[in-house]
Structures are given as C-alpha cells and as structure tokens.
Write a protein that binds this DNA or RNA. Structure first.
Length: 445
RNA sequence: GCCGGCGUAGCUCAGCGGUGGAGCAUCCGGCUGUUAACCGGACGGUCGCCGGUUCGAAUCCGGUCGCCGGCGCCA
C-alpha cells in the first residue's frame, strides 16, 4: 500500500457534529444535503464513477462518487479504498430505483479516515474461519441484527421486572459451592483455596429474598460440560429470579408473563431485526399466558405411546423434548419431575416421588428455556440428597442458615438468555446469540 | 465421554498413484449506473503434521493435531 493512502484526514473539513445516521439519510427528500460516516460495505467502480455502499449502526446506503463532481484526491480515494475502510462524506440525496433502498447519495466530498487492509472475510466463508475471525464477523448484518435484538430483549426484561416489584441484584460469580454437582464446574485457584466459577446465582439470590423479597440478576454462568450441541455454551448469560412467598404455581405464572411480555414487546420494538432474522410477527403474537402444563408422568406416557423407550426416572433428552413440543405454538411447562432427576434444593411434593418444579420448553425444538422450582426448606432432606451426590456439606452451612432464620416458602427460576434469543431469532446455533461464544473447543477471540 | 465428517493458494473448493488447478479476494489495465458488477492480465502453495508402502504419494496405509456436526449432560 502506498504511503499517501495512510494519511489520517480526520481534522480536514468535517469537524462539525452534524452527521446523520444512515436510516435518517434514507428518509430524507430528493435534493437534501447530508453528511454521513461509516464503513465501506460494498464497492464497485466503472471508469469515471464509483459505487460505494456505506454501513453504519443503522443500515446501509449507496453512495455515488463521480470523477467530475469531486476533487481528484477524493475520487482516487473512492477507487482505492477497500471494504471496511472507514469514511465520511457529504452529498446530495437522490431518489433512484436503481439504488438499493431506493435512495442514494451523490457525493460532494469523500474522505477516507482509515484505509483498510484486505478484509479477510469475503464471499465464501466456513464456520471455522468465521469463528476465528469473530472480532471482524461481528460487523456482518446478521450478527448486528442479533446483537440489537438481544439489547432490546434485555431492555424489555428490565422493564418487566421493574414493573413487577423485583429488585435487580448483583451476586458473585466466584463460589466454593459447585451447586449442580462438582464435575461440571470450572475450578481455579483462589489464593490458597479451590474455588469455582458460578453455575448459578440461585443460592445467593435466595439469601437476598429475606430482605428484598423479589430479586433478579443477570450474570454469566459457567458449565464445564463437554457438550457438543447447537444449544450449549460453556459461558452464558443467566437470568435468574427468586421470589419469597411464591409457590411453584405462581412461579410458573411469573415465567410465562415475563416470556410473553418479551415477545409482545419485541414485536413492537424490534421490527427490522425480526424481519431480517426471519421471525414472523404472528408467531410472536400468539405467545401469551397461559402456557400449557404437562406433568412428567403424562409426558412420559405420551413418549411411551410414541414408541420411546423411556421409564420412570429417566430424564428427557433432545429427541423427547422435540416430540413434547410438536405442534405447539407456545412454550410449554413440564412439571413434577422425579426427585432423583433434579437438584437437591427443589421441594419434594406430597407424593414423595416428585419435586415441585417446572421446565419451560420452547416451541420448534429449541429446547429448555427455563428451569424453575419451589425451594426445599427441609435441611435434613437436602443434606441427604447432597451426600448422595458426594458434595461437601460444610460449604452449604451458610445456605442452610437461610432455613434456620425465618424461612418462608419461596421459588425461583433460571433462564438461559442465549437460548431465548436463539428461539426468538430462529438461529440454527446458539453461538450466534452471543458476540464471543465460549465452547468446549473455543475460547478465542 | 461416545459416533460421524473434513483439513489443498488469503477465502471457498475440485483433483484421489505420474510436472499442483478453478472461482473469489488482492495488484495492474479497461469501462459513466453498478446491484456479492463486468472484461483482460499478474501475484499467490511445506496439499495440517509425523512416519510407512511405492521407481514415484496431495492421492494408498498407520499415527497425531486441529476443526465441524450429532448424542449424552444441562439453561
């Protein structure tokens, strides 16, 4: 590359702040003057005319740079600048049905802020290459739309919790308790102790309900499971809530209200994102309470009738989940799993065989969105179940204290944010629901 | 952890025992309306790595490393 193309022009003519975003430019009228800045998305040239498609956070617009309409330096820059070069320009809006989007800018000035090197991502890409270049692939329209959808989802979730008397809290992600059984937790040296990256904030949220009553948190959760599926990340954003004075029934109501609220509001607030990603509005419109509830026992019978070789005490796998949601437009709850299939902290039902829990399964085979339960208040039974897993009881004494000092019936749930996004955005892999996916074989970039 | 697949130019792939190819990208030239533009030319390789078979290996065999997909486990 010649030295002259590496000059930083930023202090040249565009020192004012009167730029407009591309979506705004696309709504302007014929003849209006605009200044925009962004990155080169596509470029084509034909002798004395350059077609430069420019991208910013709001969209793309085609720009025409003609040889006799701009300075020689600007024209040359427009022909030299490669994809992803950062640029700023001033021009006149023209309506033209040959332009993508029906409008384009005829440049008066065209400045390159940074001449990009050859952008490695081109026409054909493999999954591996795109993951290796994730830091650059994030600029793609698909990932941009997903990231916007995720941000809007979080905004809506926060609004719902605010309106429903929940306090947002900030629990730790460093713990000595490997809550779901030590084998699947990442361990590390914490000074002189062995500690774990949190798999759930649940026990910490339980401690907080005795002052705040209804709490929620958003934290990373870590799973050291060597899962190789399209539904698993080793690090994911875990949305958890815990509610005092709430039983399993009301817990399910809270969950279906929350998920429905997210769908109804995304429908209104994320039109462009949903359309780009191929999720139809009417598919979200039907997501309203109540969601269907089916007990583990009934689900088991349904599966057996369909020819699955499952018996009482087996957990459901991906093929089972797919069958259970077959034909369902809304998520469903599967309730009352056998004690031995679930965690030590879930409350045992009066039948002494099942726990008061519910898994929310997404339609279309996207799998478990939420796992929730009413919490046990029986210290002896919890100790028994922990010991059966081989856990160190000492680390759980503080948790048992919560039952010793004014315990109340309470429930809570955990939602995998990326699972929710994967379902709503119709993604074929969960890795695209997060900017820097962490998987068994990938921790970079 | 189990099963299957793939590693060849910067990228996507073809070649499957006899002198390593194409498309895209990049560079040079041409073109005043392109739509992942087009036309001509150039540049570009430890054929993942190690070993074996063979007169000869990208190609056949063994091992190894990396990646992808599915199952299990989970959100």
């Amino acid at each position: 590359m010649e030295k002259q193309w590496q000059v930083f022009y930023y202090d040249s003519i565009f020192h004012t702040m009167d730029y407009c975003k591309i979506d705004e430019a696309l709504s302007k009228k014929e003849g209006e003057k605009v200044k925009i800045r962004g990155w080169i998305y596509r470029r084509r040239s034909a002798g004395k005319i350059s077609f430069i498609v420019i991208r910013d956070s709001t969209g793309i617009i085609q720009t025409i740079v003609e040889k006799d309409k701009v300075s020689e330096k600007d024209f040359k820059a427009s022909q030299k600048a490669l994809i992803e070069s950062s640029v700023e320009l001033e021009g006149i809006i023209h309506e033209d049905n040959r332009a993508p989007g029906g409008r384009e800018i005829h440049a008066i000035n065209f400045r390159v802020i940074n001449f990009a090197d050859d952008f490695p991502i081109t026409e054909y890409q493999s999954v591996e290459f795109l993951l290796d270049n994730r830091h650059l692939w994030l600029r793609s329209r698909k990932l941009t739309e997903i990231m916007k959808l995720k941000a809007k989802t979080l905004r809506i979730i926060r609004r719902w919790f605010d309106e429903n008397d929940f306090y947002e809290v900030t629990p730790t992600v460093i713990t000595l308790n490997a809550a779901e059984g030590g084998a699947t937790a990442f361990s590390f040296k914490y000074f002189d102790q062995k500690a774990y990256l949190s798999q759930t904030a649940q026990m910490y949220l339980e401690a907080l309900i005795f002052s705040l009553e209804r709490v929620w948190s958003l934290t990373p959760s870590f799973r050291a499971e060597k899962s190789r599926t399209r539904k698993h990340l080793t690090e994911y954003w875990h949305l958890e809530a815990e509610e005092a004075w709430v039983d399993n029934e009301e817990n399910m109501k809270i969950q279906e209200e929350l998920v429905s609220y997210v769908c109804q509001n995304l429908m209104k607030e994320a039109n462009n994102e949903l359309e780009f990603l191929g999720r139809r509005k009417d598919e979200l419109k039907v997501i309203e309470p109540p969601f269907k509830r089916i007990s583990y026992e009934k689900a088991l019978k349904k599966l057996q009738k369909k020819g699955f070789d499952v018996k009482w005490g087996d957990d459901f796998g991906a093929p089972h989940e797919r069958v259970l949601v077959e034909g369902e437009e809304k998520p469903i709850f599967v309730t009352n799993f056998p004690i031995e299939t679930k965690a030590f902290y879930m409350k045992i039902s009066s039948d002494k065989k099942t726990v008061k829990c519910a898994d929310m399964l997404a339609p279309e085979g996207y799998g478990e969105l939420i796992g929730g339960s009413e919490r046990s208040e029986d210290i002896d039974s919890m100790i028994k179940r922990l010991k059966a897993q081989g856990a160190n009881i000492e680390n759980y004494q503080w948790y048992f204290d919560l039952r010793r000092y004014g315990s109340v019936p309470h429930s809570g749930f955990g939602l995998g944010l990326e699972r929710l996004i994967m379902w709503i955005a119709k993604l074929d892999h969960i890795r695209d629901a997060t900017p820097f996916p962490r998987m068994v074989r990938r921790a970079s970039p």
